[in-house]
Design a protein around this nucleic acid. Structure first.
Lengths: 142, 142
DNA sequence: AGCCAATTTAGAATTGTTCTAAATCTTGAC
DNA sequence: GTCAAGATTTAGAACAATTCTAAATTGGCT
């Protein structure tokens, strides 16, 4: 896992947001910290709850706004698994998500090096790969 | 595209539903027909509107129930693209979905024959592959 | 200092989905 | 055939996730 000093982190945020025409605000910083702190693919609601601990006045709408801002500037990714709330992930390395149907944990998984081959003329921007199944721990227990 | 006679179709539905302990009802038949008729990955709401044309008394909840029943018995798949309504697809051959960010059309795409390699002990049940980008037509126009 | 645009806030509104309870339909046992 | 048990449908309420709105706040920039 890549680590950065708080200073590097802040600079990185400012740059990435700036490139999209957005500012680094304390709220965006906070939301980003929440994502980096515990990488368990929280929903917007969960991010809200965690951010509130450090910043009690933060509002619901702001968390959505911040998450959008982070996604737009390439600092976080949305993870969509089935119906239900969207989850967020600060790991920007190309990867997929494995969802355990038993314990509901979400794992990051590497993608096959080979790119998906698309029909002629199609341009891929990003991939969203979700795999549903049973994780090693749950498979063992059963 | 595989085609079946109405009789074969009905038998196929009865069998697949039956194997999951469910019945073939006129509503389920209708919802399945809607999916097979125009394979543009409609949302539940769109399925509802189309089904209503042939069966005006069908209710919202029934459409959800029918779609669930079809998914559970392996007659249709859910397609989740970003936030927003879940879409449905009667193509049960393993495939991914390409979503054009310009015209919003959803295309079925083949998957690389090679399976995703998972960490030891993980058992995959099914894959959900969404690719976001620009389709050939839209890329040309621009 | 003062202005303009970006951002945040609380809460209302909207959207998509699920739940509930009553009515209806099927199926299998007799 | 008839009846009971269970599955399914229905309308509408309830719920959850997200977006919108309008007003207040903040942060540069001249």
């Amino acid at each position: 896992m890549k680590t950065r000093s708080p200073q590097q982190d802040e600079q990185h945020l400012t740059e990435q947001l700036g490139a999209t025409g957005l500012r680094l605000t304390p709220q965006r910083q906070q939301v980003y910290d929440v994502l980096r702190h515990k990488r368990d693919h929280p929903t917007a609601e969960e991010v809200f709850i965690r951010a509130k601990k450090a910043m009690p006045e933060i509002s619901h709408a702001t968390v959505y706004n911040c998450l959008d801002a982070l996604v737009k500037s390439g600092l976080a990714r949305q993870v969509t698994l089935d119906r239900g709330a969207t989850r967020f992930c600060p790991n920007m390395i190309e990867h997929g998500h494995f969802h355990c149907d038993v314990c509901a944990t979400v794992f990051d998984v590497d993608l096959p090096e080979q790119a998906m081959k698309l029909p002629k003329g199609f341009k891929a921007d990003h991939f969203d790969i979700a795999i549903h199944g049973v994780c090693a721990d749950c498979a063992k227990k059963k």
